[in-house]
Every structure is written in structure tokens, then in C-alpha cells.
Write a protein that binds this DNA or RNA. Sequence first.
DNA 1: GACTTGATGATAACGAATATCAATATCAAA
DNA 2: TTTGATATTGATATTCGTTATCATCAAGTC
Lengths: 146, 146
Amino acid sequence: MDAKVKFNKFLINKGLRQTKQRDEIVNVFLRLERHLSTQELFDIVRKKDKDVGYATVARTLKLLAESGLCRVVDFGDGVQRFEHKYGHEHHDHLICSKCGKFVEIYSKKLEKLQEELVRKHGYTQEYHKLDIFGICPRCGKGKQVV
Amino acid sequence: MDAKVKFNKFLINKGLRQTKQRDEIVNVFLRLERHLSTQELFDIVRKKDKDVGYATVARTLKLLAESGLCRVVDFGDGVQRFEHKYGHEHHDHLICSKCGKFVEIYSKKLEKLQEELVRKHGYTQEYHKLDIFGICPRCGKGKQVV
DNA sequence: GACTTGATGATAACGAATATCAATATCAAA
DNA sequence: TTTGATATTGATATTCGTTATCATCAAGTC
């Protein structure tokens, strides 16, 4: 199912309305394949349409998360960022602590191990969040031979 | 080396001073083997001594983190919490998303796998943070048979 | 004991997320 | 199509944890 369709179904299911602003915001978000903060998305949307407020962008991102189209990522800098989720494989992040550049990482083995650990403690996993911080090749160049 | 001694060495190394307030705050923190927010630690310290301000507790926790005695944990609720690090094995967290109860988890295999992943991308790992959210046995009881 | 300079406490400033509210738009029903 | 109940909106106020400010105080050196 198309992501946009899924969102609209979500709205109807919740008794919410489809509006011009929500359409615009969701369209822009879905088109951009990257992590965005509320402010960043607001700035982009605002360039096309002066009639969209910050609050509406924030509210719509919340709805997008609720609907399963995106998820919140929090690298601990106090800013919530949102990334695509629907139609995207789960992944974790490897973040350069110097320049902030990150890559998405995934390992089936890792996931399985985590699941095992959870079961061992009697928990039922809902989701997890693995952020690895390190130095990227570019930032580490010339620093050491390892 | 005793944790307290290590902290005092850290202070001297940085050209900082040992004060009554820092002593008190560090003592209380080291005695309590649990995660604490600035506010929580402040409340506890304040009960013993009315002459310690919130700002000093916040500043001291920052120093404790810098000195390697504690680390910041952030479960994404907007509050920084601090946990012991010195003399404690590295571990990750398995958190109940219903009641907030958590257990510390550790797996050597998991750590190794992560290290491999990092190397594969040409990064040099500094640290990582794995939080798994799920339902704890108590909260999940009677809900489903799985 | 005096002096240099870091430390302190109270509180202001900050920043992001969220709440508020009057005006407006949606959409189902008439 | 018009209407009306109510969800939505934009601007902004509020909230809340963290951080900065600054006059006063105290640690540690001489």
C-alpha cells in the first residue's frame, strides 16, 4: 500500500480530517529520504507555503509516527528527529561523534541475539534502539594506524 | 583505585578545587547504586545539607561524567539520568515500556558483533547505547500466552 | 594571613516540545 | 448546496530540563 494512502486511512480510522496542510507536510516528508527535525521540516514546507505553522508540522509528525509511517530517533542531543519507517527495513545507527555523519546498519545475527537476551529475562520485545558512536573513516584519517 | 580518589585526582589534573559541596554530592552519588536525574540527586543531597544548590549538583554530575565515574543515560523522555560507570561492567538496558522497570543486560557475543559491524564500515567505535523496550514479565502476565 | 582565581547559589536565559484559544475548514447530514 | 458539529489551524504562551550569568564566597598557594 502506498504510504500516503496508509496515512489517509489512519486519519479516517481515528476520525481525523484530511487537510491541505497535512497533505503538504506528509508529501514533503515522504519525498525526502532523510532524518528531519520538526524545525527542519517546517523550514522546507514553509518555503513552498507560507500558510503552514510550526505547530501543525509538529502535530503532523506526531501523527505520522502514530500511523507507523515514521519513527522518532533521538541521538541524545535534545532534538527529536523523524525518519521513514514504512517500507523501510529496521536498522540501527552508526554515528560519527566528530562530524555527525551516520550510516544505517543492520545485522540479522545482531537482531536474533538481542531477541534471545530479551526472552532470557522474560520480557517481550517491542522495539529497540542501538546507536553506536565512533569516528568515521574521514574524520579518523591520518590520526592513527589502528 | 577508589572511585572517590579517582575523582579527586581528576579535579587536581584539571586544576579544579575540592570543595565541601562536591564532596557531599559525590559521596551521596557513589553510595546510591542506581540511576539518578539531577533533580533526584539534588533532592537527596538537599535533605542533608540546605547549602547545596541545584546548579552545583548539575555541574558536579557533569564533572563525574567527564572523569569517567558515571555516564549519562537517556531513555528518550527528555531527562538525563546518571549511572555509575567506574568499577562497573559496561551494560545495556532492557526497559519495560509499561512500568518503566529496567534490567541491565550484557552479552559478550553482542558486543563482538557490534564491533565487527563498526569495523566493516571503517569506523572506530567509541561507545554505544542499546536500549530495548518491551513488556516485563509482571506487566505481561495474563495478557497473552505467547 | 592575604591574594588569586575557581566555586557557589539563586535565578535568568535558553530551546524544544506541548498546550491554548479564537478563528477557520472539513465533511456528513439535511 | 447549505448547514452545523467539531476537528484543525497558526500564533504564541507555557512548560520543563539544561545551561549561562554574576556577585559573593572560599580553596589553595605564597
